[in-house]
Design a protein around this nucleic acid. Sequence first.
DNA 1: CGCTTTTGACCAGCGC
DNA 2: GCGCTGGTCAAAAGCG
Length: 306
Amino acid sequence: MEDVLGNSACSQFTVNNFPLESIFDLSSNEDEKIVSLGFMDLQGVQDLISPPFLEIMTAAQQVPSLISSQVPPTPPPSKNIDSPQAINQPATPNSSSISSASSEAFNEPAKVDDQEENQQKIKKQLKPKKTNQKRQREPRFAFMTKSEVDHLEDGYRWRKYGQKAVKNSPFPRSYYRCTTASCNVKKRVERSFSDPSNVITTYEGQHTHPSPIVPPPNLGGSHLSTAMSAAALDMPMQRTPPNYHQHHRQQPFTDSLSPSNFGHNIGSINSILHEKRICTPGTGPSLLEDHGLLQDILPSHMLKEE
DNA sequence: CGCTTTTGACCAGCGC
DNA sequence: GCGCTGGTCAAAAGCG
């Protein structure tokens, strides 16, 4: 673990490029200690070199172990509170780190379904009954995007259901929910206090349906379309419609570290990376970031496969 | 008319 | 227990 954590590329990347704004608010399960790391906690003051973050970074290099756990396009996974693996994720490398990176839910067997149905029923009720358990949360994934608009077009349709002022920030946080009836995916959007040009988006849950916005074919070549079609079935942040990149510059690392990306195969990851390189204008600094960061983050063999 | 956004209120969790 | 904060609800308003 320390070997990985001590990876200078990782530290450098975190400290120099995304000092305090890289958000990986990845709630795991009823063990809410990660959940407690809210945006504002992480943003600005949170030491991202802390183990949870670095575990995620580590998880980025554990892709092969995740590839086998392809996320089915079925109801969003929930936390299996009965699963010892879901509880008290040890700060050990490999699978445990991956689990702490909000992927444990993806790896849960089908037995979760019943629980998750109950959970969703409860969620749909106005007043969820409070049981012995703490409120369950979907796996979350946050990333930061350089954008002038708050609500990034990610190919899904969202309905805003709330807005709250954020502590220590002049920018409000907006709450969105996927408009698809059976889909409980939510996302939160807020502007980075330390860098207002950055928009922090947190996705919670997993889409149970393909993206309603079908990207036009032959944009960016086969790599792009492959990545899109695959990603469209999964987490929203994976897919980036053409117009998305026209207006926004997403921090590359976030895509590459997306747990859902891990849920696919390396080819898909490479496709997404390829997509970004295709779509990111070479005139901006993002290209430089892209190039350097991706190399830092991704195992070298993955980049070679491109 | 249907859908989305706005916004104040309410509730739960957490720390003191 | 109390206050703070995050998250959600739901009525009203806005929009196409």
